[in-house]
Amino acid sequence: MTPEETLEILKNKFPDSEFTYDNELPVDAYIIVNPKDLLDVCFFLRDEENLQFDTLMNLSGVDDNNATKVKDEEGNEKLEGRTLSVYYHLHSMKFDHKFYLKVSLPIEKPEVESVESVWKCADWHEREAYDMFGIIFLNHPNLIRILLPYDWEDGSYPLRKDFETPEFYNGMKIPY
Protein backbone atom coordinates (compact mmCIF):
# COMPACT_ATOMS: atom_id res chain seq x y z
CA MET A 1 0.00 0.00 0.00
CA THR A 2 1.44 3.38 -0.95
CA PRO A 3 1.64 6.28 1.53
CA GLU A 4 -1.01 8.13 -0.52
CA GLU A 5 -3.53 5.32 -0.05
CA THR A 6 -2.76 5.10 3.65
CA LEU A 7 -3.28 8.85 3.89
CA GLU A 8 -6.74 8.50 2.28
CA ILE A 9 -7.70 5.85 4.85
CA LEU A 10 -6.48 8.11 7.64
CA LYS A 11 -8.41 11.11 6.31
CA ASN A 12 -11.61 9.07 6.22
CA LYS A 13 -11.06 7.72 9.71
CA PHE A 14 -10.14 11.04 11.35
CA PRO A 15 -12.24 13.65 9.53
CA ASP A 16 -11.68 16.31 12.21
CA SER A 17 -7.92 16.13 12.13
CA GLU A 18 -5.47 17.78 9.80
CA PHE A 19 -3.01 15.78 7.74
CA THR A 20 -0.47 17.46 5.53
CA TYR A 21 1.24 15.51 2.82
CA ASP A 22 4.79 16.77 2.52
CA ASN A 23 6.43 15.41 -0.60
CA GLU A 24 8.61 18.28 -1.76
CA LEU A 25 11.54 16.32 -0.42
CA PRO A 26 13.14 14.29 -3.21
CA VAL A 27 13.46 10.89 -1.54
CA ASP A 28 10.99 10.33 1.29
CA ALA A 29 7.52 11.80 1.76
CA TYR A 30 6.01 12.57 5.18
CA ILE A 31 2.59 12.93 6.63
CA ILE A 32 2.52 15.76 9.15
CA VAL A 33 0.13 14.91 11.96
CA ASN A 34 -1.41 17.14 14.57
CA PRO A 35 0.38 16.32 17.86
CA LYS A 36 -2.85 15.90 19.82
CA ASP A 37 -4.08 13.13 17.50
CA LEU A 38 -0.80 11.27 17.33
CA LEU A 39 -1.57 8.48 19.77
CA ASP A 40 -4.96 7.66 18.21
CA VAL A 41 -3.45 7.68 14.74
CA CYS A 42 -0.65 5.36 15.83
CA PHE A 43 -3.02 2.88 17.47
CA PHE A 44 -5.17 2.93 14.35
CA LEU A 45 -2.17 2.37 12.07
CA ARG A 46 -1.05 -0.59 14.13
CA ASP A 47 -4.41 -2.31 14.56
CA GLU A 48 -6.25 -1.64 11.28
CA GLU A 49 -6.78 -4.88 9.40
CA ASN A 50 -5.11 -3.94 6.12
CA LEU A 51 -2.43 -1.60 7.48
CA GLN A 52 -0.85 -3.42 10.44
CA PHE A 53 2.24 -1.31 10.98
CA ASP A 54 3.70 -3.62 13.57
CA THR A 55 7.21 -2.15 13.81
CA LEU A 56 8.53 1.27 14.61
CA MET A 57 11.80 1.27 12.69
CA ASN A 58 13.06 4.55 13.97
CA LEU A 59 12.04 7.54 16.00
CA SER A 60 14.14 10.65 15.78
CA GLY A 61 13.98 14.08 17.22
CA VAL A 62 15.09 16.96 15.02
CA ASP A 63 15.78 20.58 15.81
CA ASP A 64 14.31 22.37 12.79
CA ASN A 65 16.12 25.62 13.68
CA ASN A 66 13.52 27.50 11.64
CA ALA A 67 12.98 30.62 13.74
CA THR A 68 11.98 33.73 11.85
CA LYS A 69 12.57 37.33 12.86
CA VAL A 70 9.41 39.06 14.03
CA LYS A 71 9.00 42.69 15.10
CA ASP A 72 6.78 43.34 18.10
CA GLU A 73 4.84 46.59 18.74
CA GLU A 74 7.85 48.45 20.02
CA GLY A 75 9.89 47.55 16.98
CA ASN A 76 12.24 45.12 18.77
CA GLU A 77 13.25 42.16 16.72
CA LYS A 78 12.84 38.73 18.23
CA LEU A 79 13.00 35.16 17.01
CA GLU A 80 9.80 33.16 16.90
CA GLY A 81 8.27 30.03 15.47
CA ARG A 82 11.16 27.67 16.08
CA THR A 83 10.00 24.08 16.23
CA LEU A 84 11.32 20.70 17.26
CA SER A 85 10.08 17.74 15.23
CA VAL A 86 9.70 14.07 15.86
CA TYR A 87 9.85 11.67 12.92
CA TYR A 88 8.29 8.22 13.12
CA HIS A 89 9.30 5.60 10.56
CA LEU A 90 6.78 2.79 10.49
CA HIS A 91 6.92 -0.49 8.73
CA SER A 92 4.65 -3.48 8.41
CA MET A 93 6.34 -6.83 8.44
CA LYS A 94 3.19 -8.54 7.25
CA PHE A 95 2.50 -6.39 4.17
CA ASP A 96 6.00 -4.93 3.75
CA HIS A 97 4.92 -1.32 3.36
CA LYS A 98 6.28 1.79 5.01
CA PHE A 99 4.75 4.99 6.31
CA TYR A 100 6.50 8.05 7.69
CA LEU A 101 4.92 10.42 10.20
CA LYS A 102 6.09 13.74 11.52
CA VAL A 103 4.89 16.01 14.30
CA SER A 104 6.14 19.53 14.87
CA LEU A 105 6.21 21.03 18.34
CA PRO A 106 6.91 24.60 19.42
CA ILE A 107 10.23 24.86 21.22
CA GLU A 108 8.65 26.69 24.17
CA LYS A 109 6.44 23.70 24.93
CA PRO A 110 7.72 20.58 23.14
CA GLU A 111 5.20 18.05 24.41
CA VAL A 112 3.73 15.07 22.61
CA GLU A 113 2.05 11.82 23.66
CA SER A 114 4.40 8.88 24.08
CA VAL A 115 3.87 5.98 21.70
CA GLU A 116 5.54 3.53 24.06
CA SER A 117 2.18 1.82 24.64
CA VAL A 118 1.87 1.19 20.90
CA TRP A 119 5.38 -0.01 20.10
CA LYS A 120 7.59 -1.10 22.98
CA CYS A 121 10.79 -0.10 21.21
CA ALA A 122 9.77 3.56 21.35
CA ASP A 123 10.78 3.58 25.02
CA TRP A 124 14.52 4.13 24.61
CA HIS A 125 14.16 6.12 21.39
CA GLU A 126 11.94 8.60 23.21
CA ARG A 127 14.31 8.81 26.14
CA GLU A 128 17.09 9.57 23.68
CA ALA A 129 15.03 12.31 22.02
CA TYR A 130 14.35 13.75 25.48
CA ASP A 131 18.02 13.52 26.36
CA MET A 132 19.25 15.17 23.19
CA PHE A 133 16.47 17.68 22.41
CA GLY A 134 14.40 18.07 25.53
CA ILE A 135 11.23 16.83 23.89
CA ILE A 136 8.75 15.81 26.61
CA PHE A 137 6.87 12.60 25.91
CA LEU A 138 3.70 12.61 28.00
CA ASN A 139 2.78 9.40 29.85
CA HIS A 140 6.16 7.85 29.20
CA PRO A 141 6.90 5.31 31.98
CA ASN A 142 10.45 6.43 32.71
CA LEU A 143 11.42 9.67 31.02
CA ILE A 144 14.95 10.28 32.30
CA ARG A 145 18.25 10.91 30.57
CA ILE A 146 19.66 7.84 28.85
CA LEU A 147 23.03 8.57 27.24
CA LEU A 148 24.21 11.57 29.21
CA PRO A 149 24.82 11.25 32.97
CA TYR A 150 21.76 11.59 35.18
CA ASP A 151 23.26 14.66 36.83
CA TRP A 152 23.93 16.48 33.55
CA GLU A 153 22.87 20.10 33.70
CA ASP A 154 19.10 20.60 33.41
CA GLY A 155 17.97 22.37 30.28
CA SER A 156 21.19 21.57 28.42
CA TYR A 157 20.31 19.52 25.34
CA PRO A 158 23.35 18.78 23.16
CA LEU A 159 21.76 18.24 19.77
CA ARG A 160 19.88 21.52 19.78
CA LYS A 161 21.53 23.83 17.30
CA ASP A 162 22.19 26.51 19.90
CA PHE A 163 23.93 24.15 22.34
CA GLU A 164 27.19 25.31 23.81
CA THR A 165 29.59 22.87 25.42
CA PRO A 166 29.82 23.54 29.15
CA GLU A 167 33.26 24.35 30.59
CA PHE A 168 33.22 21.81 33.39
CA TYR A 169 31.37 18.67 34.43
CA ASN A 170 31.96 17.46 37.99
CA GLY A 171 35.27 19.30 38.13
CA MET A 172 36.54 17.84 34.85
CA LYS A 173 37.36 20.29 32.09
CA ILE A 174 35.49 19.46 28.90
CA PRO A 175 36.95 21.59 26.06
CA TYR A 176 40.24 20.50 24.57
Partner: peptide
Protein backbone atom coordinates in the same frame (compact mmCIF):
# COMPACT_ATOMS: atom_id res chain seq x y z
CA UNK B 1 15.64 16.37 1.39
CA UNK B 2 15.72 13.43 3.69
CA UNK B 3 16.11 9.69 3.56
CA UNK B 4 15.68 6.73 5.84
CA UNK B 5 17.76 3.83 4.55
CA UNK B 6 18.29 0.53 6.31
CA UNK B 7 20.79 -2.25 5.96
CA UNK B 8 21.39 -5.72 7.33
CA UNK B 9 24.36 -5.43 9.65
CA UNK B 10 25.78 -8.42 11.50
CA UNK B 11 23.87 -7.20 14.57
CA UNK B 12 20.59 -6.36 12.86
CA UNK B 13 18.92 -3.52 11.02
CA UNK B 14 21.16 -0.48 10.77
CA UNK B 15 19.19 2.58 9.73
CA UNK B 16 20.50 5.96 8.70
CA UNK B 17 18.07 8.86 8.81
CA UNK B 18 19.75 11.74 7.03
CA UNK B 19 18.25 15.19 6.57
CA UNK B 20 20.02 17.43 4.11
CA UNK B 21 19.47 21.19 3.95
CA UNK B 22 21.33 21.45 0.66
CA UNK B 23 24.68 22.37 2.18
CA UNK B 24 27.88 20.33 2.44
CA UNK B 25 27.15 19.34 6.05
CA UNK B 26 24.31 17.02 7.02
CA UNK B 27 21.56 18.88 8.88
CA UNK B 28 20.78 15.85 11.00
CA UNK B 29 21.95 12.25 11.02
CA UNK B 30 20.14 9.84 13.26
Amino acid sequence: GSIYARFENPKGELGYFIISDGSVNPFRVK
